[in-house]
Simulated scan of single mutants.
Amino acid sequence: MEQADPMASWPTGRLLSTAARLVEHRWIQTLERVGLTHAGLVVLHLLDAGPLSQTELAARAKVETQTMSRTLDRLEREGYVERERHPQDGRRHVITRTPAGRAAWESARTLEADLFPTLSDQSAIRQTLLEIIRASSAGRWEP
C-alpha cells in the first residue's frame, strides 16, 4: 500500500519556508563553484543596466546600505566591480562591473534553469511568490 505524501498536510508557510531553505542551499553551493555569493549575483545582475551608486544598488536589491557595502567589498576584492568617485559628487561612488564581473554574470545567469526542474506553471508560481513577497514586505521597503 502506497503512503500519502506527509508534506501534503503541511501548512503553506512551512512548505514555503522549506522550499526557500532548500533553494537557498542549492544556490549557495552552485554559486560558490563560480566564485559568487547570491548577493554578489544580484549586484552583477543590477549592474547589467550600467553603473549605479551604492545607495541605488541597495535600494534596488532591497537591502541596507551597510549590507550592500559588504557585498561590494567582496566583489571588488574578487575583481568583479570597481568603485570610482562620482564625477559630480565626490562623496559618492559609482559602481561598475568589470570584464571579470561580466564573465562571472554570464556564467551564472543560466544557473536557475540548470538547477531547478521546469515547473508545470512557472508563471503562476512566480505570480504567487510576488504576491507573498509584496504582502510580507508591506511597509518594510520603499516601492
Score class of each variant (00 low, 15 high):
residue 1 M to V: 15
residue 4 A to S: 01
residue 4 A to N: 04
residue 5 D to P: 01
residue 5 D to G: 02
residue 6 P to Q: 04
residue 8 A to W: 10
residue 9 S to H: 13
residue 10 W to S: 12
residue 11 P to E: 13
residue 11 P to F: 12
residue 13 G to T: 14
residue 14 R to I: 07
residue 14 R to L: 14
residue 15 L to F: 10
residue 15 L to M: 13
residue 16 L to M: 10
residue 16 L to D: 05
residue 16 L to W: 03
residue 17 S to C: 01
residue 17 S to H: 05
residue 17 S to V: 00
residue 18 T to I: 00
residue 21 R to V: 14
residue 23 V to K: 03
residue 24 E to L: 08
residue 24 E to A: 14
residue 25 H to M: 08
residue 29 Q to V: 10
residue 31 L to K: 08
residue 31 L to Q: 04
residue 32 E to Y: 08
residue 35 G to I: 05
residue 35 G to Q: 10
residue 36 L to S: 03
residue 38 H to P: 01
residue 39 A to F: 13
residue 41 L to Q: 00
residue 43 V to K: 06
residue 44 L to D: 07
residue 47 L to I: 09
residue 47 L to R: 07
residue 48 D to M: 03
residue 49 A to I: 12
residue 49 A to L: 05
residue 49 A to D: 11
residue 50 G to R: 02
residue 54 Q to D: 03
residue 55 T to D: 02
residue 55 T to P: 00
residue 55 T to S: 10
residue 56 E to A: 15
residue 56 E to N: 03
residue 56 E to T: 09
residue 57 L to A: 05
residue 58 A to I: 05
residue 59 A to L: 06
residue 60 R to Y: 03
residue 61 A to L: 09
residue 64 E to K: 08
residue 64 E to S: 04
residue 64 E to I: 00
residue 67 T to S: 14
residue 67 T to L: 10
residue 68 M to K: 02
residue 68 M to E: 04
residue 68 M to C: 13
residue 69 S to W: 08
residue 71 T to K: 04
residue 72 L to E: 00
residue 73 D to E: 11
residue 73 D to H: 09
residue 74 R to K: 14
residue 75 L to F: 12
residue 75 L to M: 10
residue 77 R to A: 13
residue 81 V to R: 05
residue 82 E to C: 09
residue 83 R to V: 02
residue 86 H to W: 08
residue 87 P to L: 02
residue 87 P to V: 06
residue 90 G to D: 07
residue 92 R to M: 15
residue 98 T to Q: 02
residue 100 A to Y: 00
residue 101 G to D: 02
residue 102 R to M: 02
residue 104 A to W: 05
residue 104 A to H: 12
residue 105 W to V: 00
residue 107 S to P: 01
residue 109 R to G: 01
residue 110 T to F: 08
residue 110 T to V: 01
residue 113 A to P: 01
residue 114 D to C: 13
residue 118 T to W: 11
residue 118 T to Y: 07
residue 119 L to Y: 12
residue 120 S to L: 14
residue 121 D to L: 08
residue 127 Q to G: 08
residue 128 T to I: 05
residue 128 T to L: 15
residue 132 I to D: 01
residue 133 I to L: 12
residue 135 A to P: 05
residue 135 A to F: 09
residue 135 A to W: 10
residue 136 S to Q: 06
residue 138 A to T: 15
residue 138 A to G: 09
residue 141 W to I: 10
residue 143 P to T: 15
residue 143 P to D: 15
